[in-house]
Design a protein around this nucleic acid. Structure first.
Lengths: 214, 214
DNA sequence: CCTCCGGTTTGATCCGGATCAAGGCGTGCG
DNA sequence: CGCACGCCTTGATCCGGATCAAACCGGAGG
């Protein structure tokens, strides 16, 4: 829908990149960028580092909604309030654009509106994949899927840096840290990956991992 | 984001309703509306009945992505191919609009582009809620949440018709039919609901159900 | 260099939900 | 009216992942 073929202008792909402010706010590891329930006055883009967005149930159970890497957008809301909390997973810089400015831009330029649609629809696709993961996949398939996803999104080949703790992985995958840890160990025992350090993974048999992802 | 306050025109809320074709294709129960991988030439709106969209893994595991009731839109894709299969859950009528027509409209009218954004963002919100459900809720919480969701979306008060089979519920909730059935029975035993017939539920203690939903 | 400390791994056991297996029941059809 | 077929419920057992508990690292600070 709204395929790029139909863009009215000649410019290749109007990102929203140009419209983001020049200043790049910095956040240290685990610093909150915005909180659930706060006014959603800005939309964000990760410049460097990584961000997690999550929600917490009354009793403390946490579900990470999404990880955001360099270039990814987050914080775009339908209502005027953030539905999730956003935190830096490492030292991170972001760019921001006022929601109102984005809205005005979309009203003026069809290609901007299309770019916003694209952003939202990409988020929806990712969320749908997440649903499939959580609803119908085993712990092992989930972990393998996450590693491949991180590799792809951070443009890593065989070696990748995992920018999150085991707890973050668990809360994204709907598992516990113990299960994540055991699963990684067993993937290593089977020779599919290597774990030189806790946050560094080598994909030794990518096709086997991809096969698990079904 | 893109809040209704900023609409340029005076008209209250430009739905996409006006732009959908007049003909209402009909589908009988379990009939496919479109299949995963098929060209996404149209966007759909449920007129009457209900629709499920789902994906299937190689080994047959099915995950229902979303249920769509009267008024709901479905089939809007970022790419030109459907990522899910859509089937009528009961005898159903839908309205359709050519994707290209919608795209043209969005390019001309800011309010149309905004309506499309709204549609997509609502789908994203629902998907995020689904993720939270699947990642961090017990079987009992999931079933209670689904009942409340159906009640709300079909505008039912205390009594509601469940338009789907136990298998559909299970495949939406990431459970098995046996667990869904047992959970419903235990909710009934606890006096939270009554089940006069298989597809008819009475919410006897809505606040208790809502409390489970956390 | 040693110690401390938070994050991670590993071990033992438990439990919620899956699986396997029968029954019940409502509905449509002969 | 009765039979049969699908769906649903219920029962028995199993198992994947959770929970509880302890040991193991690896990096920061003294």
């Amino acid at each position: 829908m709204l395929s790029p073929i139909r863009t009215a202008t000649a410019q290749p792909a109007f990102g929203l990149d140009a419209v983001f402010g020049g200043a790049c706010p910095r956040f240290v590891r685990d610093e909150e960028i915005f909180g659930e329930g706060e006014a959603a006055d800005y939309v964000y883009q990760v410049v460097s580092g990584a961000v997690r967005t999550y929600r917490i149930l009354r009793d403390g159970r946490r579900q990470i909604d999404e990880f955001h890497f360099a270039g990814d957008h987050f914080g775009l809301e339908l209502s005027d309030v953030h539905r999730v909390t956003a935190e830096a997973m490492a030292d991170t810089t972001v760019r921001m654009i006022r929601r109102g400015a984005l809205s005005d831009l979309a009203a003026q330029r069809g290609d901007a509106a299309r770019a916003i649609f694209r952003l939202t629809a990409e988020g929806l696709q990712r969320s749908q994949d997440h649903v499939l993961m959580l609803g119908r996949r085993s712990a092992c398939e989930r972990v393998a899927g996450l590693l491949l996803d991180i590799a792809e999104r951070t443009h890593a080949k065989a070696e990748l840096d995992v920018p999150m703790s085991r707890q973050d992985m668990a809360d994204y995958l709907g598992l516990t840290i113990e299960t994540v840890s055991r699963t990684l160990t067993s993937l290593q025992d089977e020779g599919l990956i290597a774990l030189p350090t806790v946050r560094h993974v080598v994909l030794q048999d990518r096709s086997a991992l991809e096969r698990m992802t079904a």
